[in-house]
Amino acid sequence: MNTANRLAPYMFMAPAAVIMGLCLLYPLGYMIYGSFLDWNPSQSIGEADFVGFKNYINLFFDPAFRESLGVTLTFAVSVVIAELVIGVGLALLLDRNIRGMSLLRTLFILPMMIAPVVVGLMWRYMYHPTVGTFNRFLKSIGLEGVDWLGQNALLSVIIADIWQWTPFIFILSLAALQSLPRSALEAARIDGATNWQQIVYIKIPLMMPVLIVTALLRLIDAFKVLEVILVMTEGGPGLSTEIVALRISRTATEFRELGTAAAMSNYLLILLLLLTVAMFAFTRFQDARAARLARQVQEEG
């Protein structure tokens, strides 16, 4: 009985540990090793030549890779900023006691649940130069059609992502808003604060911790976007929408340079690791501050 109890945690942990070790950590190690090799898909990893940091250095000076890194950063940052502004704005606006709020939320999460492939498909149709909804609408009111997926490809891709993911931020900030301490808002109202003052001086500062975590989560996810862009533009025209994830997959399958693709994956991984560490550091900092404040209150009381 006693040994059973002592072994229990390991038995509960074992399946997850084995699977994650074998299918996540081992592949990651394999990739890091592979990134130092001149390696193509017809070789097994043992046959490939060791080239040291060559892949990393080549990539660092490769204008195409730099461009796709730039596209990725532009995409991720502008998507997160736009979604934050719209999502939080909507949450502030819709934080009211209205009939049918749950139905509204249900409809809002639909875009997130649908396959990225399908989202890409829908928007590719709507952006179509002649058949598409947008250009047809523009022409019907007498305006010129816009070359959505040609000259404005990156913008079009960003709009599609905003459509899909703003609800995520909206729902999280609505939840944060509704769990704000009523007493603070009440006090402000009694002191005669206008709606606008309440938002700027009370609601937004109190929501800040949740907003920062949400934004970081969304930023990490924005680096993972691949299918929507693949279906809409396939990275084109030129390299204008070729995000790093897409470039990795093309380098591996079309150019058949696994070593380079692995090095690219590593760059992306390091970037995301930094973001994740930033998120942890921030939540730890928040917890520490909350604990300190609580202790202060206790000591004074």
Binding site: P27, M31, A262
Partner: peptide, 10 residues
Amino acid sequence: MVPPAVLLVP
């Protein structure tokens, strides 16, 4: 935080 694209090669 590991994206699927990173897992592709390994």
